[in-house]
Amino acid sequence: MKGFEVFDLSGDLGLRIFGESLDDLFVSAALGFYSSVTDPGKILVKTEIGVSLEEESLEALLVAWLNELIYLLDAEGFLCKYVDVKSVSQRHLVADLHGEPFDAVRHECGLLVKAATYHGLSVLYDGGTWKATVILDL
């Protein structure tokens, strides 16, 4: 199963995200994000950052997760190669991000994402699969 797909949307970026478990769903969301920002194949694993989030709903948790990745990229230049989900529920997520800081020489410049939005947001469990739609403001 493909972890994510990008869908067509005026000037912004739409992501459809899939996962057999909530772990997978959050990993796919991160992969969709980083694939839009750069070529994930060129990210090396040099450092690790821990993330712990709590929100009132699964939808809000997904938006908060993507916004955390956006914040880490802006504030620390951090690009993530892979995500290790430590624990997850519909309202909390604890994960370690493994990656390295952005390097203008080695890393391709893709899209600059401002924020994950609530516009058109949905998360549902259907036929044994988690499916989410989220729109990123560019």
Binding site: G11, Y71, D74, A75, E76, C109, L111, L112, L138
Partner: peptide, 18 residues
């Protein structure tokens, strides 16, 4: 604090997109 951290090294930068 997060907003400050995002802005700290971005004063005088153009951004992207349009």
């Amino acid at each position: 604090t997060k907003a400050y951290e995002r802005g700290r090294s971005q004063a005088g930068t153009l951004g992207s997109g349009n």
